[in-house]
Write a protein that binds this DNA or RNA. Structure first.
Lengths: 132, 132
DNA sequence: GACATATACTTGACTACTCAACGATTATGC
DNA sequence: GCATAATCGTTGAGTAGTCAAGTATATGTC
C-alpha cells in the first residue's frame, strides 16, 4: 500500500514533463530506446520492461509516432514483430527533458539517502522480477 | 522508474481481489476505514492517504456505496464535510478478503527479506511524505 | 456584518491504461 | 507436411483515475 501511494505521489510530480508534451511513461520509453542497441526495441519488450500490456504500448506509441519522436520498422525474419525506433527528434527531446527529470529526482530522493536507494532497488527487483 | 514498474506488476497481482468484486484501492479504503476510530473518515483524508484526488475518491466510493460496503454521514459542525462510514457488510468483506491479500503479500515479499521491508518503508516515507 | 479567501466535495470532459477477442505469422510434435 | 500451439500486435469496450470549473460552506479581516 505504501508502494502504491509513493508511486502515485512521485508520478504526479513527474507531470512537470508535460512541459515537453509528454507523460511519465513516454519519458521511460525514450530512456529505454536511447540506451538500447541501435536505438530500437520490439514493442512487446518495451511493454514488458515498463510493466504495461501490449495493447497499452500500442496506445502509448500512437501519439508518439504521430509527432515523430519514434518510428516503425519491420523485421525481415519475422513478419509478426515491429520495432520502435528512436528518431533524432526523439533523442534530442530526451536529452532536453533528462535534465528536468534529473533535477526532480534529486529533489525526491532524500538527501544523503542515495546509498539506500541501491538496497531499495534490489528489494524491488526481488518483488517484481527483473526491472529496467 | 523501477518503483513505477514494480507498483504496476504488484497491483496487477492484487487483481485476485476481483473475486470479491473489488479493486486494489477498494481494499485499501476498507483497510483504512476498518482501523480508523469509529470506522469512519472524511473523504478528503481518505484521498490524501491513498494518494488520489478528491474527485478520484468520489468516483471510487460511488459503486462502494451502491453495493453497501460503506455509507455516508454528515458532520453537524461543518456542513461541507461528509464522512465515509464502514458498514457491517464492508467490515465482513474486509475480513474475508484480508486472508487472500495476506497470502499474496507473503508470496510477493521475498522470503527472509521481510526485515528489509522496514527499511524500504522508511525510505519510501522520505520520498512521498507520510504514508499509511 | 460584508467581503475575500480557503476548504470539502461533485461534475463534465478527458487520458491512460485494462481485458478479451481477433488476425497474422511462426514454431513444434509427430 | 500438416495440424496444433504459441507469439506479436491491434482493436472495441470498459475502468480508474485526472484536471478544471462549479457549488456550498466556513473563516479571517477590517
Amino acid at each position: 500500500m505504501n508502494l502504491s501511494k509513493v508511486q502515485a505521489v512521485i508520478s504526479k510530480r513527474f507531470d512537470v514533463l508535460n512541459a515537453y508534451g509528454m507523460g511519465f511513461n513516454d519519458f521511460v520509453i525514450l530512456y529505454l530506446l536511447q540506451q538500447a542497441p541501435a536505438g530500437k526495441m520490439r514493442r512487446i519488450d518495451l511493454a514488458d520492461k515498463i510493466g504495461i500490456t501490449a495493447s497499452g504500448i500500442t496506445r502509448l506509441l500512437l501519439p508518439m509516432e504521430k509527432v515523430g519522436w519514434v518510428s516503425r520498422e519491420s523485421n525481415e525474419r519475422d513478419a509478426r514483430v515491429s520495432y520502435v525506433v528512436l528518431s533524432p527528434a526523439g533523442r534530442q527531446l530526451f536529452e532536453d527533458s533528462k535534465t528536468t527529470a534529473d533535477d526532480l529526482a534529486l529533489e525526491i530522493v532524500p538527501r544523503g539517502k542515495s546509498k539506500n536507494c541501491k538496497a531499495l532497488t534490489e528489494l524491488l527487483s526481488g518483488m517484481g522480477g527483473n526491472i529496467i
